[in-house]
């Protein structure tokens, strides 16, 4: 992995949204007073008639989105994840999921790496909230390039979608040729000793952890899960059956998130596979420098490495 290149995941969303708008005149966007932060400003500039400023009103934001979808529009709606889906879960449940309106929900500034703003703005429960909803697709791309592809894929997908993205620059680990579809999990590194399953900002950390583990004499298989729901159970099972132990990593609460989803797969299949979940352990964050916070709460390559050692030990 190269550390030379990094960019906020949301920048890729901004580029993807403009491209989606060029490809399909039905693409529209709504924002709740955070247009620059969530990177909808490019779309607003290019398509002023197809951009709607809703104001600081997240319940209205997503429900207006449901109405736009009812009129045949491909509606992208965005705010900080703490507020959307944080404040408007029932509207998403009723008017989007149960009502089967394919609104595209974009949760920006997700995770603890929001940093100095503190716990109120560090959304850690969005994966659990969205994963629990029937009909909802849940995405967490690992870098800006993948976020751009995910945005274009969402514009064509006929289901309600939720995509989370982080505020800070994230290392770029994919390129234009890296495959992306909604649905599949991708094996980024092959290995036989332990499986590292990661999503979003934790995928670059998992790749880095695999490098560290290689030096320790452990060959880790890295599975990147950009689509948390529906989960690519087949790819995950193939890897688990090969390695026999697993570490999951996500910048979110371990309750109800990717780690829980993998635990469900293991239990459903009756596998005796040691699992260690990296994530926020039923606690809130606090203010601080993003990188320091990630280290403080155990959300980095070093902690994944240590967890992988422990998982391999438990196999014996």
């Amino acid at each position: 992995m190269s550390d030379t290149s990094s960019e906020p995941i949301r920048a890729g969303f901004g580029r993807g949204l403009v491209k989606a708008g060029q490809l399909d005149h039905n693409v529209v966007a709504c924002c709740a007073d955070l247009t620059g932060s969530v990177k909808m400003d490019g779309f607003q500039k290019e398509f002023p008639d197809r951009f709607f400023q809703i104001g600081v009103a997240e319940q209205n934001l997503v429900t207006v989105g449901a109405g736009l979808a009812a009129a045949g529009k491909v509606a992208f709606v965005s705010s900080y994840a703490a507020f959307m889906p944080g404040r408007c879960w029932e509207q998403i449940r009723t008017t989007i999921c149960l009502n089967e309106q394919p609104v595209k929900l974009i949760g920006a500034h997700a995770g603890i790496s929001v940093g100095p703003d503190g716990a109120t703005h560090q959304m850690l429960e969005d994966i659990a909230l969205m994963r629990a909803l029937p009909n909802m697709v849940v995405l967490a791309p690992c870098d800006s390039i993948e976020a751009e592809k995910a945005t274009l894929a969402m514009a064509k997908d006929k289901r309600p979608n939720y995509m989370r993205m982080a505020r800070e620059a994230t290392p770029i680990i994919t390129d234009e040729k890296t495959p992306f579809q909604i649905g599949p999990a991708y094996v980024l590194e092959k290995g036989a000793d332990v499986t590292l399953i990661a999503t979003g900002t934790m995928t670059p950390q998992a790749v880095k952890a695999a490098e560290l583990l290689y030096k320790d004499g452990i060959e880790a298989e890295v599975v990147h899960v950009p689509t948390i729901k529906p989960l690519d159970v087949k790819t995950i099972l193939q890897s688990l059956k090969k390695t026999g132990c697993v570490v999951t990593a996500e910048e979110a609460q371990i309750t109800g998130g990717l780690g829980s989803a993998v635990a469900e797969v293991i239990a459903d299949e009756g596998l005796a596979v040691p699992l260690i979940r990296i994530g926020m352990k039923d606690q809130f964050g606090e203010s601080g420098d993003p990188e320091q916070l990630m280290h403080h709460f155990g959300l980095d390559a070093q902690h994944i490495r240590l967890a992988a050692h422990a998982a391999v030990e438990r196999k014996k």
Binding site: Q59, N60, T63, A75, T95
Partner: peptide
């Protein structure tokens, strides 16, 4: 939630 959806519909139908 009805009026919000009416707004989305009205804006969409206009487009």
């Amino acid at each position: 939630s009805g009026l919000s959806q009416a707004i989305g519909l009205a804006m969409g139908l206009r487009l």
